[in-house]
């Protein structure tokens, strides 16, 4: 294996550049929000049903570890990511009108999964 220790000079980030960049980033965010508020006065229709097969318990995935559409999610599994615990999630995306899920691992401490876990914990206690 090719391990190399380079004595690196600490990259100095120019504070003026940071300030300038942040200004532009905020402007872009704001502009994006504003444009949507103006454009979409009418509320969009909601089409957020989670396909039932996603809920077809974990057992199925245990067997072959595949997403519902048969595409492999195996390569996403990042076993070697040190001590930080990771949680497996299914990311639901649309391809045209077709729904697909892919497995991903997200950090344990991500706010996204905090509430789910709390709920699970609560359920376990019952």
């Amino acid at each position: 294996d090719d391990e190399v220790h380079v004595r690196q000079k600490v990259a100095e980030v120019d504070p003026l550049e940071v300030a300038d960049f942040d200004r532009e980033l905020r402007a872009l965010m704001q502009e994006s929000l504003d444009s949507r508020k103006l454009e979409l006065r009418s509320r969009p229709t909601i089409n957020m049903m989670i396909p039932m097969n996603v809920f077809e318990g974990p057992t199925k995935e245990h067997h072959h570890g595949r997403g519902i559409d048969g595409e492999s999610g195996d390569e996403t599994i990042d076993e070697g990511s040190g001590g930080t615990k990771e949680i497996r999630v299914k990311v639901l995306v649309k391809r045209g009108n077709k729904q697909q899920t892919k497995q991903m691992y997200i950090p344990h401490d991500c706010s996204l999964v905090q509430s789910t876990k709390q709920k699970e914990a609560a359920e376990l206690e019952e």
Partner: peptide, 25 residues
């Protein structure tokens, strides 16, 4: 710049959702 993830309340399923307007529906 508008997108973010939300998760399902019961299962470990996440989706991308835009902040405006979908998140406020």
């Amino acid at each position: 710049f508008l997108l973010g993830f939300i998760s399902a309340t019961t299962e470990s399923v996440v989706v991308l959702l835009c902040r405006e307007p979908c998140l406020s529906v």
